[in-house]
């Protein structure tokens, strides 16, 4: 059967498609039916508390772990059976690594460039990550921040179409974190698709086009930060002054309420404040709800 044109267009626009993904260790279900779609060119964050199944999910997508059930397609292939050509399209940045301690930065990057069809230029990479001065240094002699930049360089040296980042900024100081965020934004501007895991909501909000909130092995919500607020049926609080008295009202549609108030009062609304719940409020509530379930 030939795919219909719409289906084909959909496929070329999709980097990762996951449906009903399940993972079971012994009698413990770590993932209980996860559904995700990552579009090409977007930054997608898997957000969740520790133990929610983020790392398990990303490792299944990377082809490092075999799933117990469900359908997974990454760049059009099943990670469990895909070959080296598929792997060459992926870049992976994991949590703090100490590998290749005796290798010098430049020789390590040059060596890893040889594994790929269309690698990046190592000099350009060193310059971009501010590692020129460390090029001749052994990896074990680098500072923590420099070492992480080497990890990033190794993750993108193969010029991947899809980059996985597992808790990329864990242990970063604020400056390193900022620099890292800027780098991710540059890569996104170049059109690289990225899937990252984080337990830091602000990181997800800052970097990701879309966020999936993973709680207790399920996707509790998925969408842009704004959509998440709606999907969590966020209740905004509207405050105003009426006859010298402070009035407050909780509403899912503050715009509608303000419009009604204006009509009722026939003009500006004194002391108007509209409080929308922050994403953080919503996220915390989701985690609490997940815990009580």
């Amino acid at each position: 059967m030939l795919p219909t044109p719409t289906k084909a267009a959909e496929d070329s626009a999709t980097a990762v498609a996951v449906s009903d993904l399940r993972m079971r260790y012994g009698d413990r279900d770590v993932l209980c039916g996860v559904d995700l779609t990552v579009r090409r060119g977007e930054v997608f964050a898997l957000l969740g508390p520790n133990g929610a199944g983020k790392s398990t999910t990303i490792e299944i997508l990377e082809g490092f772990r075999r799933r117990s059930g469900g359908e997974v397609s990454v760049l059009g292939a099943d990670p469990d059976t895909a070959g080296p050509a598929w792997r060459g399209e992926l870049g992976i940045i994991l949590q703090s690594w100490r590998d290749h301690p005796r290798w010098r930065v430049r020789e390590l990057l040059e060596h890893f460039a040889t594994y790929y069809e269309h690698p990046r230029d190592v000099d350009e990479l060193l310059e971009r990550l501010g590692l020129q001065e460390q090029a001749a240094q052994e990896c074990q002699k680098l500072s923590g921040g420099q070492r992480r930049r080497v990890d990033v360089a190794l993750g993108i040296v193969g010029n991947p179409r899809l980059l996985f980042l597992d808790e990329p900024t864990t242990g970063f100081d604020p400056v390193a974190r900022r620099e890292f965020h800027e780098l991710v934004e540059q890569l996104r501007d170049e059109g690289m698709t990225m899937v990252l895991t984080t337990h830091d909501l602000h990181e997800a909000e800052r970097l990701a086009d879309r966020i999936a909130v993973l709680i207790a092995g399920r996707v509790a919500a998925c969408g842009t930060a704004a959509e998440l607020a709606v999907s969590a049926r966020a209740q905004a609080e509207v405050v105003w002054t009426d006859d010298g008295q402070t009035r407050r009202q909780i509403t899912p549609d503050p715009s509608q309420l303000v419009w009604e108030l204006q009509q009722r009062l026939g003009g500006p609304i004194p002391g108007l404040e509209v409080h929308r719940p922050t994403l953080e409020d919503i996220y915390i509530r989701m985690i609490r709800e997940g815990e009580t379930q």
């Binding site: 690594w97 100490r98 590998d99 890893f112 790929y116 190794l154």
Partner: peptide
């Protein structure tokens, strides 16, 4: 993690 790094490359 040297082996894991190798695993990430084709």
């Amino acid at each position: 993690g040297t082996l894991l790094r190798q695993r990430t490359a084709p």
